[in-house]
């Protein structure tokens, strides 16, 4: 069966929600078990006392990327059928900057805040309330930001194409960079004073 299974029509739609819950549960379990339910553990990446976010995030992205590319090569899944988030250059950068500020202040991102709520973190519940209000405010004030939202549209481009190298070469460089970061993170962790949390 060539994936993706649901868009190709291999799985009846009734199963959609069941699959969503199961995949979500895998997602939530792994995040929580890796320590993403603690905002102070997450923030360790930015102060050098615990690089768990960096490690988990890049390992996950590379595992999925390498897996998808081999699936594509072996004919198990069609890489070109995968949804590639369209690139709106300005919107992505401005949005990323705003999220970065929110990250440094709140200590969670939406996914990790859900995990933290599940194990009873009150700050995460407050964070998610803020998230809800932020999204509501954005939707209401959309006419003011519509220009930024729509600006810099480059379509669903791949980073390797915009750099002019093949997917394989880019993935290889990404792997090397990530391994370098993991190594560097270990060195930094040794020097930085441990923080109790």
């Amino acid at each position: 069966m060539t994936g993706p299974l649901i868009p190709m029509g291999y799985i009846p739609e009734a199963w959609n929600n069941v699959i969503a819950v199961l995949l979500g549960a895998g997602f939530g379990f792994t995040l929580e078990a890796s320590g993403f339910s603690s905002s102070r553990k997450i923030m360790g990446t930015f102060y050098g006392y615990d690089f768990v976010v960096l490690r988990v995030f890049f390992t996950a992205a590379i595992t999925a990327l390498v897996g998808l590319m081999y699936f594509d090569y072996l004919g198990w899944a069609d890489f070109s059928m995968m949804y590639v988030l369209p690139t709106y250059l300005t919107a992505a950068i401005v949005g990323g900057i705003i999220m970065g500020m929110g990250f440094a202040m709140g200590g969670y991102c939406p996914g990790t805040s859900f995990c933290a709520i599940a194990i009873g973190k009150i700050d995460a519940l407050v964070f998610t309330t803020g998230l809800l209000i932020g999204i509501f405010a954005f939707s209401e004030a959309f006419p003011l930001v519509e220009k930024i939202y729509e600006s810099g549209n480059l379509g669903s481009i791949k980073v390797s194409d915009s750099l002019g190298i093949s997917d394989g070469v880019f993935t290889f460089i990404l792997i090397i960079v990530a391994l370098g970061m993991f190594f560097g993170a270990t060195l930094v962790e040794r020097k930085v004073k441990k923080v109790e949390y």
């Binding site: 390498v66 081999y70 594509d72 093949s166």
Partner: peptide, 21 residues
């Protein structure tokens, strides 16, 4: 790390599919 790097090299060597979707 070695396994990952080998996997990456493998990906570099796999033939590129036609770019046209």
């Amino acid at each position: 790390s070695a396994i990952l790097i080998l996997a990456g090299i493998g990906l570099m060597l796999t033939p590129k599919k036609s770019a046209v979707k």
